[in-house]
Write a protein that binds this DNA or RNA. Sequence first.
DNA 1: GCGAGGTCCTCCGCCCCTCAG
DNA 2: CTGAGGGGCGGAGGACCTCGC
Lengths: 318, 318
Amino acid sequence: MQGANRIVFLSMAKQLQHVVIPCADARLFKIPNSCAIDQILYQLALNTMSSGHRYGAFLDAAITAAKLAIYATYLEQGKNLRRTGLLHHVEPKRVKEIVQEVQSALTEGKLLKTLASEEPKYLICFPHLWLKQYPWNPGQPRVGSSEFSAAEKNQIEKILPAQLPNAGVITAFQLTELLQLLLVESNKHSPSNQIVLSEALEEHIKLRLLESGTVMQIELMGVGSLYALARTTYSPKDKRERVYSMLDDVADFFRLMQSWVDEQPDVLRGLETFNVAPERKQEALQELDVMLQAWADKYHQDDGLPMVLHMAIGPEEE
Amino acid sequence: MQGANRIVFLSMAKQLQHVVIPCADARLFKIPNSCAIDQILYQLALNTMSSGHRYGAFLDAAITAAKLAIYATYLEQGKNLRRTGLLHHVEPKRVKEIVQEVQSALTEGKLLKTLASEEPKYLICFPHLWLKQYPWNPGQPRVGSSEFSAAEKNQIEKILPAQLPNAGVITAFQLTELLQLLLVESNKHSPSNQIVLSEALEEHIKLRLLESGTVMQIELMGVGSLYALARTTYSPKDKRERVYSMLDDVADFFRLMQSWVDEQPDVLRGLETFNVAPERKQEALQELDVMLQAWADKYHQDDGLPMVLHMAIGPEEE
DNA sequence: GCGAGGTCCTCCGCCCCTCAG
DNA sequence: CTGAGGGGCGGAGGACCTCGC
C-alpha cells in the first residue's frame, strides 16, 4: 500500500452531481383520501427529510409531538392516567411512561427526540470538526497522509478545484474516524439518545455530505478514495434560508390561527379569493406590498404592543 | 332482571361534564430543544388528537406522510431503491415495500393510513346510525327495551332533557351492538385497514361520545345504564368549524410558502412586525380588513387568474 | 455500483387479566 | 373508578450478512 512508484490515476474529482430526474413535481402528487392535516404532515415530511434528517428522526419527532399532546391532556384531566389513556386509546401503563418521560424533560432537562432545531448535528458540525482536526495552511501539502510520495501528492493537488476551504485532504479511514468522533461529541452533549455509528448510518451520512456538495470525493484508481472538504458549511440546497423562513412563518401562522380559533382578542384572520387579470397582477402585488408597509408604519408606535402579521398570496390551487 | 315492581332510581341524567382543570395553557408549555417543525408537529398533534383521533391514528398518518416523502425521493432519484434508502437511512428492502404500498395506493386506489381515511368515522357516523337503527316518533315511548314496565319508562322519560333528537333510548348492550355495526360498515367501506372492536377501543369510543356530549348516560341504580342520543352530530367542541378553517388555511398557507421557497412567480410573502398603541389597535385591525377587501375588489376581474390570499395578524409571541 | 434474499433483536402499539385502595 | 401489577402478540425500525448482476 505505501506508494513506491505506483502510478496514481485520478478520476475526475467529482462533486457527485447525481442525475436528478426533472420530475420536480414528483412531490406534488395528490394524496388520495387525505385531509388538511395529512397535507401539512406531508409538507413537513418532505421538508424535514429532504434537508437531511433521517426517516426515523421524523417519525421520532412526530411521536414526541403526540406524547406532548398526551401530556397536555393528562394535565387538563387532573392528572388522571386512566382517563387520559381512554381518551387517546393508549394503555394507562404507557401513559404513565410517557408522562414521566415528558416530565423529566421539562424539569430535569432530559432531551426528547425532537428534530432539535437545525439539520442533524452530524451534518452541520461536520465541516467545523474537519477544519479543526485537519487544518491546512497555504504552502503546505494538502494531503497529510504518509501513504503518498511527494510526487503523488503533487499530482493529486493538481486535480483539486482552486477554491477550497483551508482543510487537509484525508483518507477514507480518516473520514470514518471523523464521523466517529462527531458522534462521540454529539453523544457527550446529550447523554440520553445515544447514537451508535453503524455501517448503515455511516454510509447514509457520507452520501448526504457528498450529495450536498459539502465533501468531495477523489477516486484513486484501485486504491480507494481521498476526500476533500468542499465547503465550510453543510447546505443541502441553496434555498436553505428560504426554507427556514417558511417553516418559521408556518409555525407562527399556525400559532396565530390557533389563537383565532380560541377567539383570543386582537387576532384577525384574513382570507381573500379573487381573480386578477394577468396584466395587472404585478401591479396588484406591488400595490399590496406598499399598502401593507404604509399601514404598519402608520400605526407603529415604539412603546406599543408588539404585533406580527403573516401573509401569503399566490395562485389558487387547481 | 325483567322488571317486576323493582324500583328504578335514576341518578341525574348527566352529560358527563367532567372536571376540566382551568389549566387552559397546559398545551402552551415550551418544548425544550425544539425547532419550527417540532412546533408545527405539536400543534398538529394537539388538534388531531383532541378532536377525537386515536394516538395511533396520528402516528400512522405521520408515517404515511414520511412514506410519501420517500416515494417522492425514489422518483426523483430515477427509481433507485438503494440510493433512496441511503439518502433517508432506510433499508432498500423496506423502501421497496414502501414504494409498492404507495404505488398501489396511487393506481389501484388502495388506501393509505391517512387521517381522512380513518377520520374517526366511528364518531362522525355514529349519530346517523343511531337515528336509523332506533328511530323515534313523538308520542311513542322513548325506551324501546322490553326490560322495563310502562311506569318505569315514564319515570325515565321524565328525567330526560326536553330537546332531544328523534331517537330512542337504548341499553348498554344495544349501544355496544351499534358500535359493532358501525365498525362492520366502516370495514366494508375500506377493505384494507380492518379495525376490530376490542373492549379497549369500545371504551375509548364510548368515552369520546359521552365526553363530547353526543351521547348522554342515564344511570339506573344498580341495574346498569341507559343511553340517549343528545345531538345529531359529533362535535367535540363547538369550535369545530373554526378548527377546520384553521387547518385548511395552514395547509394552503404552507403550500403557498413552498411555492415562494421555490421562487415561483406571482407568489408574495408578507411579514410585518411592529408595535401598536393599545387604543388604536381596533382601529388598525379594522382599517386593514377594509383595505384588503377594497384592494381585492379593485383588481378582481371575473375571467382573471384565480388567486388566494391568506393573512393572520395578532400579538407577537413572548 | 445495483437488486434480492435471509436472520436477528428490540421497541412499542395493542390486547387481555387481576388486585388493592 | 383509580393506580399498579402481570402476560402476550405482531409489526416494523434498525442492523447485519451473502449472492448474482
